[in-house]
Every structure is written in structure tokens, then in C-alpha cells.
Design a protein around this nucleic acid. Structure first.
Lengths: 198, 198
DNA sequence: GATCGATTGGATCGTCAAGTCCAAAATTGT
DNA sequence: ACAATTTTGGACTTGACGATCCAATCGATC
């Protein structure tokens, strides 16, 4: 059983852990650091989570909820090429605001955990699938609305878009400028635009 | 002064460290593990490298030499869309052979180190620039050979290709299949192909 | 073959992180 | 109010990792 107060404490821990892991990576985030950032004691972390791996798993779920839910909401309303470009501007804008630091929280977690934590890898694969499906559904709407021709392959284009997005974020993190992210997204959108019904 | 024998030892350490860091990440690779894998003693690591950060820096240079040099060689000979697709097949084939494990060594290093080691970030940004330039030069050759129209923007398309490549590798690592990598590269090449002179 | 720097082995140190433990305090239900 | 359960504080244990130290050995050069 867990009370409302306990739930709040649990969430405070996950929130602090997510923040620290985004900024310093999973391995670079110690449980003492999480304890201090969340303003709790050591025992509380292990009261709510079996070990650091379980906490990391909760952080993955938390970031997925933040990011993928938001993406689904925005992409669900795409009904024109202009709306797709507006989505692109949103993504680029977020990265610019962060001064290209940190990359994608999910991408970073995946890169760090994929080889050494199979459960985390599977969870992140699922997050990426949801994200890709959201893009695909946006493209399907464009076909249904008569914006794009039916020959366009929404599955393939969505995967390509997600790849360009993740790679663009990774490169912008390394190069500290968003040009690769912009070039990647713009080029995929240009390709999509060629299916436009004129 | 460093003798040939010392040089060989140094290289053995870098090679072992690169291998371990590729499989387990930088933080997941301890100096005792490197010592054992390289068959040297602790003191030798610190005889040839100031600290783990310096060794990591050597690993970045090593991976850059392996990967980017090879990419420059292959991309330097691109003279047709078919050759570009052959390069795509090469990249996808490598990832398939590794069963999509590990992602891109440079991408993984970048994701892990970018925020916490500024020198490593700069070195990796440089590696990515070289890689992007190699792609760009391949595309420029296609224009010069009259395969593509001059309107094609090789800089932008090369950045997009590199983003799709890195993102595709990251997603294939998480999802344990190469479909995102293939979709990403194919979509960018499809876009490039539309600049073909018919 | 003597000299001197380069190389090597391996014990060792200090630090810090993950995780445990137990008792105290707070909260809940009756 | 009281019992049961949850929540909390913080000291503590254990182990590993990065890094150091020093003596021993190797090998090139004169």
C-alpha cells in the first residue's frame, strides 16, 4: 500500500533522477546526488525502488510520458505540410532553447543503456515505436485529407523522420548547433512534399 | 622518449579500451578491466596516459581513424547513384553483421561524453564534421560528373544523410533491427535521386 | 659490459557509490 | 485513543574503481 504522501515522495525522486540523468547520464548520476536533489533520505529511494535499475526504469517511463505524449498530441493534429513544418519548428526550437545541450533524453538513455540493461532497451524500443507511430499517423492523415498521394509509404517515411530527428539531435549535441537537425528534418519533409497532390 | 615496444604496449591498451568502451560504454569500462584485456599492469596504463580521460581521448582518435578514414575512402569513389546505394548497403550490412548491437562507436561516445567532457565533445564534433564532409564531397562529385543537377545542396544533403545514419544506428540498436537505418538512408537517397539529370 | 632512461609488476591508498539496517515519526483505519 | 502500517532519517557496511608508488627489469647506446 502506498499513501498519497508516499506517492508524492516517489514522484519527487523520479523527477530529480530524470533531471540529473538527463544532464549527467545514468552512470554519472549517483544515488546520493538524487537523494540531495530530491530532498529525501537514502532509505526512501530504496523504499520505493528495488535498486538503481528499477529507478532508471521509472525514469524511462517518466521521460516517455513527457515526450511521447506531447509528440502524439501535436502530431495528431497535423493536416497539412505547413503543420508538419510547424512541428519541425517546434522540435528545432526546443533544441535551440537548450542551446543544443543534452540531446534527446530518450536517445541518450537508449545509447547508454541498450547494451547493458535488456529491460531498459525493450522499454526504450517501445517508446521509439510509439513515437514513430505518432509520426506515421500524422502522415496517414495527410493522405486521408487528400494532401498526399496514396503511394507515399507512411511507415517508411515515419521511420526515416524519427531517424533524422534522433541523429539530428545527437549531432546538434556534439556540434552545439542545430544545423544537422534542421537539414535532416527538412530533407525528409522535402521528400514527403513530393507526394503532394498539386 | 618512447621505444617501439612502448608504442606497441600503448596501442594494445588503446585497442582493448576501445573494444570494451564500445561494448560497455566509457563509464562501464573500468581501468582494471582494460588492464586485464590488454594484458598489462596498472602502472602501464598510467605510464602512457595521464588519466582515464586522456585514454578516452585516445580511444576517440582511434575510432575516428578506423571509421572516418574508411568512410572517406569509400565515399571518395562515389560516382553514381548506384554507388551511393552500394555505400548504403555497406553501412547496413555492417550493422546487420553486428546484429544491430552497439550502434555507432562515435555516436555512443558522443552521447555519453558530450555533456561532461568538453574536449571529447569537440573532438567528436570534428570527427562528425570530417564524416559529413566526406559525404558532401561524394555528392559534389555526382554533380561534377553530371549525375545530379547543380541545384542540389551537397552541404545540406550531407548533413541530413549523416543525421539519418546516426539516428538510424541509434534506433536499430534500441529496436534490434535495421529497418529505421534502412528507411532513413533510403529516404535521403530517394530525395537526392530527384536531382538526377534524366 | 656499464650506464641510464624506458618499461613493467603488483601491492596499496583514498574515495565514493550502492545498498542495508533499525529505530523514530507520521499517518491511517477503527 | 490505539493499533497497524507506512514513511522517514541517517549511520553504516561492503566493494570497486581511479590513481599512486616503488622497486625490479629491460634494452639501447657508448
Amino acid at each position: 500500500m502506498v499513501t498519497a504522501k508516499g506517492q508524492a515522495t516517489r514522484e519527487r525522486i523520479v523527477h530529480a533522477a530524470a533531471e540529473l540523468m538527463f544532464r549527467h547520464g545514468v552512470a554519472g548520476t549517483s544515488t546520493p546526488a538524487i537523494r540531495d536533489a530530491a530532498g529525501v533520505s537514502s532509505s526512501q529511494i530504496y523504499h520505493y525502488f528495488a535498486d538503481k535499475e528499477a529507478l532508471t526504469s521509472a525514469v524511462i517511463a517518466y521521460q516517455t510520458r513527457l515526450i511521447v505524449d506531447a509528440q502524439e498530441a501535436v502530431l495528431g493534429r497535423v493536416d497539412s505540410i505547413a503543420a508538419l513544418r510547424a512541428w519541425r519548428d517546434l522540435v528545432v526550437g526546443i533544441q535551440r532553447e537548450l542551446e543544443c545541450a543534452g540531446g534527446c533524453p530518450l536517445g541518450s538513455l537508449s545509447s547508454e543503456l541498450a547494451e547493458h540493461d535488456p529491460d531498459a532497451r525493450a522499454a526504450l524500443a517501445d517508446s521509439f515505436s510509439r513515437w514513430g507511430n505518432a509520426i506515421r499517423d500524422g502522415l496517414r492523415q495527410l493522405i486521408e485529407h487528400g494532401v498526399l498521394r496514396a503511394e507515399a509509404d507512411p511507415d517508411k517515411l515515419a521511420l526515416a523522420m524519427l531517424a533524422a530527428l534522433q541523429g539530428g539531435l545527437l549531432l546538434s549535441q556534439a556540434q552545439r548547433n542545430s544545423s544537422a537537425l534542421e537539414a535532416g528534418l527538412d530533407t525528409i519533409i522535402d521528400r514527403i512534399e513530393q507526394y503532394t497532390i498539386t
